[in-house]
Design a protein around this nucleic acid. Structure first.
Lengths: 150, 150
DNA sequence: AATAAATAAGACAAAATAGTCTGAAATCCG
DNA sequence: CGGATTTCAGACTATTTTGTCTTATTTATT
């Protein structure tokens, strides 16, 4: 009753914002960015962020390096990482295939009453996220000077 | 990480399904339907459902009547109740105006990096929900024999 | 080798959500 | 009136999500 339309959990939210921070901060080099810097810049709990970023490391989005001057970095070129891959790692693989009414096995063959509406919405979200790369987002953020913090 | 794209809380989910049950069950009469019947038919915890339905009663969607043969009923004609009103009562008024990244004050003037994508999505959801009435849903459910249970 | 800087891992606590239960109040019927 | 049926209200518990903290491990530097 307190509102949200919270499609993303806080964890995913933080992970996504962290990635956007990384790609918007790209200096061309492949230096590691520390979680301390990210958590400070984005005002996110350090330890909580750490756990989320480990998901992305395990998921093949990031590589990490320990020790002084260590941190995390994209494992692949930002052009090759689509938003959909990130969200699937953070929220689960079937994130874009769930029923709005929470009904088990709701699909085109066995639809819930709002399936026709929701399918369209999900389709658009899926399409948008499947065609938007982290590189595109980074460029957009820099060109338009967009914010990542409250 | 367990997936969901859970736009609706369980409480809202139950409330919406209960309303859809009511309108699909319409026998033309204005008899009250008991929460016991609904919770049984939809396999929802009785007491939990009760709390949610009280929100809808307080929100002006339902009227309730105690005692034998009592229950709940739509306060207004199903044609006049749009899905958007229901969701706003259950999830909060600004449900359709939140930022995907959870940033405070994200809007057209001060957008987050995914605002342009999310605004379109939200707009479509909002439009769909603002133009779909409970009556339309009830008719659809009956015509196509759609399910409200897992 | 010792120290410091960084991620990894996991125990723990707090808060939000979900669900259960008990009793009260209203209403009908005999 | 008295009992049965129903919503209303709120306390209580359980589960999930969120956040904190401590320790271990890796690596660079001196």
């Amino acid at each position: 009753m307190t509102s949200t339309m919270k499609v993303l959990s806080n964890a995913s939210n933080y992970g996504l914002r962290a990635l956007l921070y990384i790609v918007s901060r790209e200096r061309g080099g492949d230096a590691y960015i520390s979680l301390g810097e990210i958590s400070e810049e984005l005002d996110i709990s350090f330890h909580f962020l750490t756990k989320t970023m480990q998901l992305l490391t395990q998921g093949g989005i990031l590589v990490s390096y320990r020790g002084p001057n260590g941190g995390i970095a994209l494992k692949r070129p930002a052009e090759e990482i689509m938003l959909i891959e990130v969200v699937k790692i953070l929220e689960g693989k079937d994130f874009f295939d769930t029923c709005m009414l929470g009904l088990e096995g709701c699909d085109d063959c066995n639809p819930c009453p709002v399936h026709h509406l929701w399918r369209e919405i999900k389709g658009k979200v899926k399409h948008d996220f499947a065609t938007t790369s982290l590189a595109m987002m980074g460029q957009r953020i820099n060109e338009q000077n967009l914010r990542l913090i409250p």
